[in-house]
Design a protein around this nucleic acid. Structure first.
Lengths: 348, 348
DNA sequence: TTGAAAGCGCTAACAA
DNA sequence: TTGTTAGCGCTTTCAA
């Protein structure tokens, strides 16, 4: 493969009886070409089935027309929805999105290779769940880059993040207002060296409880290693059938919350009558499960818009001071929580 | 940007006091380098933070180490699960997956540009829902390529496809065996110029009905333009509240079937007691919705394995005769259909 | 074991 | 309006 020589610009030039530069000018839509010359060139291009070699163009110009989104996994809904939103937002600017997976692996050489890969794009959106603070500290990419995500990162990076604590607090306040008193936090983690999404959201849960004069009970913090739906389903089912007494669940993501609803069903609990459930992310699917999932909307569109603004800014001007944007959360009420009663409703 | 000159191989060579080729040899793990020289070079690489320019390497070698998967949309579960599977299967071979979106747009220039983009990869898996037969007929990519998908394509392409007709037949047989008699096909289409996923699966549905001495009723064929969950939900709800009498739904995809379950709920029908539902795809989420979705598993892993086999074969040897692989379907029974009664069960 | 020269296919800069 | 020259950063080839 790549053995048979493909037709190239010089072939087109020869066949059309013009110089190589004229072909280049035509294909790049530059104005300094006569109308008839342009036509002849395009004819020959079509005839020979010529396709420009983007690798050569890129080596020469340094530009690619492509932006990369790097996500930990392709098959978490959250990331595919993100990719879709980013792609839609880039299209009008003539940029094109390429999605790559970082995976969990951070082997020395793999990580080096992937850094080299970043340089192949005009800009990079890095959802850096898999990377630690130190990895980022060591990296000095020459590409415009914006970090998406919750974990702690060095200050020099541009960064967009959800308001995790406020969102989890809002969700927990809502569960309390709906009458729940024993609220588990599924996927939660009480402490870690560096703040990540799990600890931040667990903090929001704890803050809401304390504001309602409840001491957060560590027994209600149920870890979910992979943040995956099946693991969440199994975890909640196991705890409840072991006798854990709950009437509310804060799922740290919508996938976890949907898993929670399935797991509660597995052990004969009804949602929302026995146990109320709230998620976090407002995935598209969450509106369509049964019952509809009450959740926290992290302001997806605004976050994507901000991310692209920061990216564009860096692409236009090399050194812009790093910004740190935090999204605005909102509660979306659906059937997995009860209508607030007058007695238990509280002001926000 | 891209203005500030990045450190390159010649910088490393100078700093290490060796030639450029020695650096190249070290970085590519070639054997003809002395142990101490290798160490010194690696030290300098680390010190200068040198990263290889993959674009230059690619221009020179023609190889990229990357395979592209091109899907119509990022945010359909089916495609993100596919991406995940392909990525996992490529990793052991040292290849790396890049996912791009073809979109629905097929403007002349866009389509040409995207063809050029294909050449940037060592191989391409093209899920060509957006492209028509004629587009593919016109294309003569120089890259190893395997088409994934259901629509009609020129014979010269390697191609993997689900057994749509058999799958839909199996699903409909199952609904009949469970006692359903008025089975709608949501997302169905009775005819088109070229066979696509919708018509093939609708054919399977019709064949099953005919085998049970039912004449397929066109009123039971409910189109869903976008194959999206919300549209499916609205469509089934509208038909049923308009008085359409059904006791079974074949959703042409799992997303459509999940939408159907939500839509039926919206109009007060219970699944599976009033209406039984079967999907097609066996998405991961389908096991976790309420009730669990009975569906057709199209043999994902085998299809991915076959696709990569065909791709590898083309990468190793230029001209291999095109193969056309059809997957094997299987029924996955869950809560959205009733247990088969003795009376209505039938042999297959 | 190491190095010098040539060139992958394109475009920026400049010349005609 | 069109053409010539140089070179992007790397690897292949061949010579030392």
């Amino acid at each position: 493969m790549a053995k048979r020589r493909t037709t190239q610009m010089s072939d087109v030039a020869r066949a059309a009886g013009v110089s190589l530069m004229t072909v280049s000018n035509v294909l790049n839509g530059r104005p300094n070409v006569g109308a008839d010359t342009r036509l002849r060139v395009l004819e020959v291009v079509d005839e020979l089935g010529y396709e420009i070699n983007l690798t050569a163009r890129r080596l020469r110009t340094g530009r690619t027309g492509a932006v990369s989104l790097i996500v930990p996994r392709f098959d978490h809904q959250y990331y595919s929805e993100l990719a879709s939103r980013v792609s839609d937002a880039l299209a009008p600017e003539g940029l094109h999105l390429v999605v790559e997976q970082s995976g969990a692996v951070r082997e020395r050489e793999l990580s080096a290779l992937s850094l080299a890969r970043l340089q192949q794009y005009d800009g990079v959106l890095l959802s850096a769940v898999g990377l630690g603070y130190d990895d980022l500290e060591r990296m000095h990419p020459d590409v415009p880059i914006v970090l998406l995500g919750e974990q702690d990162v060095p200050d020099r990076y541009h960064r967009i993040q959800m308001n995790n604590t406020a969102g989890a607090r809002l969700a927990t306040d809502h569960l309390l207002a709906c009458g729940a008193r024993r609220i588990a936090v599924l996927g939660g983690r009480l402490e870690s060296d560096r703040p990540d999404v799990a600890t931040q959201r667990t903090e929001g849960w704890a803050a809401a409880l304390r504001a309602a004069d409840q001491e957060p009970d560590p027994a209600l913090v149920i870890p979910v290693e992979t943040f995956s739906l099946p693991e969440a389903r199994a975890a909640i089912a196991a705890r409840v059938s072991d006798g854990l007494d709950i009437d509310g669940v804060l799922g740290l993501t919508d996938e976890i919350a949907i898993g929670a609803m399935a797991g509660l069903r597995d052990v004969g609990r009804s949602v929302p009558d026995d146990v109320q459930v709230v998620g976090f992310d407002n995935l598209r699917i969450s509106e369509h499960v049964a019952p509809g999932l009450t959740t926290i909307d992290p302001g997806h569109d605004a976050m994507v818009a901000e991310a692209l603004r920061l990216l564009r800014q860096q692409m236009e001007e090399a050194a812009t001071p790093p910004e740190h944007v935090v999204g605005t959360v909102a509660l979306i009420e659906r059937g997995s929580t009860l209508v607030r009663t007058a007695r238990s409703s509280r002001s926000r």
